[in-house]
């Protein structure tokens, strides 16, 4: 399943997509994210999967800003930490 967390507003579209088919619940993203946005919890089928904390979903643009350089190549701590490549940012 592709779970999209975030929002779109007048300024753009800000979604963090978590692919639950790839996520193995390793928690590396939980440790890597400086803003502590990830949580690993059992999903509807009792498998441990990463999610973005509910209260943070409406602020992803601002919370992630420090990780995102305005120019040049970027390496997001969450995407880099996730070996199965389950995390993708839309912006």
């Amino acid at each position: 399943m592709l779970a999209n967390y975030g929002y779109s507003d007048g300024s753009g579209t800000y979604y963090i997509t978590l692919d639950t088919d790839k996520c193995d619940g390793c928690r590396d993203c939980v440790t890597a994210c400086p803003q502590q946005m990830f949580l690993v919890e059992p999903d509807d089928y009792d498998d441990d999967k990463a999610v973005i904390k509910e209260a943070m979903r409406k602020d992803v643009k601002y919370l992630c800003a420090p990780c995102k350089p305005t120019a040049g190549p970027r390496e997001l701590p969450c995407e880099t930490a996730c070996t199965p490549r389950a995390i993708v940012h839309s912006w």
Partner: peptide
């Protein structure tokens, strides 16, 4: 009926 993808607008 199993979810493959979902999206909501958490802001608005």
């Amino acid at each position: 009926g199993k979810v493959q993808q979902f999206l909501m607008n958490d802001k608005c």
